[in-house]
Amino acid sequence: MAYSDKVLDHYQNPRNVGSLDKNAPDVGTGVVGAPECGDVMKLQIKVGDDGRILDAKFKTYGCGSAIASSSLATEWLKGTTVDAAAQIKNTQIVEELSLPPVKIHCSVLAEDAIKAAIEDWRKKNAAAQGATEGAAGAKP
């Protein structure tokens, strides 16, 4: 059997499909693509003040493995910390879903999407932090 039940399950009942407000300061958005197969993956995280990921949503246009990879990723993201999320590796997704070698690039895409979303959130946050610090610094 080439596709595990887990892949099929995530493909048929994808978790956390949808969008978050990409302009909200506590939301990080990552959009990545694999041009050779025409897959696109959008992954968003909503981060709480304590650095925990409160919510995660995705939209993926691509094959079943790509959908399953991003669906699984959002499941893992919810409730974990941003720092722990940054450690997620594509190999873990491959292992969990038993992806065949030809579909490994789908898991890479999911890892890239997580990283891009975290980077986006950090950028927004650093800007906000910088602004606060700046304001604080201005106070004598």
């Binding site: 059997m1 080439a2 992806l99 065949p100 070698p101 030809v102 579909k103």
Partner: peptide, 8 residues
Amino acid sequence: ETLGGAVQ
């Protein structure tokens, strides 16, 4: 056939 039973 590639590993895992897929066809390239």
